[in-house]
Computed example of a mutant assay.
Amino acid sequence: MSKPIVLVTAAAASEETQQLLGGAGIELVFMQGTVDEVSLLKAFSCYRIAAVILRGPAPFTRAVFDEAKALKIISKYGAGIDSVDLQSATAHGIAVMVTMGANAGAVAEHALALMLALARDLPRFDRELRKGVWKDPHYVVRDFSARTVGIVGYGQIGQRTAQLASACGAKVVVHSRTRSALPPEMDWEPSLDRLLGRVDILSLHCPLTDQTRGMIGERQFRLMKPGALLINTARGKLVDEPALIAALKRGHLAGAGLDTFATEPPDPAGPLLLLPNVLCTPHVAAYTTDAGALMGTICAHNIISYLRGEIYDRRNLMNCAGRFTTGGT
């Protein structure tokens, strides 16, 4: 009997993932170069693939699912599944699972690092010192602890980011589609418009959906305080990038800390990355040793259990596939 084949939409997988899957008698096939609809269709035509480890935004469209005759499960190395046609996956009886919460701490740390770097104007000081400019005793920055941080999206990453910002002394205000119990030192704001006018730093932690796509645009930027900061470690397409560029250029926003972009990788010669008040990283917020090991472990267990007719953790299941339903424990 041939081994089940797992397709990895990247050139590598973590050691934890490979050891667990190999120990379960599963063969791994890796994708090299650009992963798009054409390359996915080719992979499914060449191999009888039972499962996919989804790394990055590989486009699982209806056409791909039509070709994936043997596919039973997609296990995302992370939490974002906006590149997957979830409705089509469900219609084809294919489970879509994530590694719920595995990277929450890593992404929250990265968001806080961007906040602190911009709040203390570290990119400017770094640039000027390298040019031979010493400190100006008349230029001082405002304490981070004197700022109000707005958290949009209160899932596990949003919660961890809120905790870290609060621990550093900032006032935290939360907005999300569903209201949750908050620590007494944090405020809930049901109106996004009102939240925008209250905060000094806006940090995005919501998934990309039809409802959230472009949710922060020209009107929202004008509602924000002059000198406010934007942090986005969620999805680039939550933000209208031309509107962001305009707000940064005219000085209404003091800066932006971005780990995600509308198009990845972004054009290094494009107007966004050329702005001196933009601090950017290449979608690496979740890439830490501990988060990577945990995501790899959960990702593998999702597949091993599902191919055995079981669910590793029902919270990781994002759709109703076969006899399994979402939610619960």
Rank of each mutant, 00 (worst) to 15 (best):
M1E: 14
S2L: 07
I5G: 00
L7F: 00
A12S: 14
A13D: 04
E15L: 03
E15S: 08
L21W: 01
L21C: 01
G22Q: 02
A24E: 08
I26Y: 00
E27N: 05
L28S: 02
L28K: 02
G33H: 10
T34W: 04
C46E: 09
A50S: 15
A50Y: 04
P57E: 11
P59E: 13
F60R: 03
K69A: 15
I73D: 06
G80I: 01
D85Y: 06
S88V: 00
A91Q: 15
V96N: 05
M97E: 15
A102H: 09
N103D: 11
V107D: 07
H110L: 07
L112S: 06
A113N: 10
L114R: 09
L114M: 13
L118K: 14
L122S: 14
D126P: 01
R127Q: 14
G132K: 01
V133G: 01
D136E: 10
D136W: 06
V140A: 15
V140N: 11
D143A: 07
T148I: 04
V152M: 05
G153T: 03
Q163W: 05
L164M: 14
S166P: 03
A167R: 06
V174E: 03
H175W: 10
T178F: 01
T178R: 10
L182H: 05
W188L: 04
E189C: 13
S191I: 05
R198K: 14
V199I: 14
V199L: 07
V199T: 10
S203M: 05
D210W: 00
Q211F: 13
R219T: 07
Q220N: 08
L223P: 00
K225H: 05
K225G: 07
A228Y: 03
N232Q: 04
G236L: 11
K237I: 00
K237N: 13
V239C: 10
V239L: 09
A246R: 15
A247V: 12
A247Y: 12
A247N: 15
L248K: 08
G251L: 10
G251R: 05
H252F: 02
L258I: 09
L258S: 06
D259E: 13
D259Q: 11
T260D: 04
F261D: 02
E264Y: 04
P268Q: 02
L274I: 01
L274H: 08
P276F: 04
P276K: 13
V278S: 10
L279C: 10
H283P: 08
H283F: 08
A285F: 02
A286Y: 15
T288Q: 12
C299G: 06
I303V: 07
Y306P: 00
L307E: 03
R308M: 03
R314V: 00
R315W: 01
M318C: 13
N319R: 09
C320F: 04
F324D: 05
T326I: 08
G327A: 10
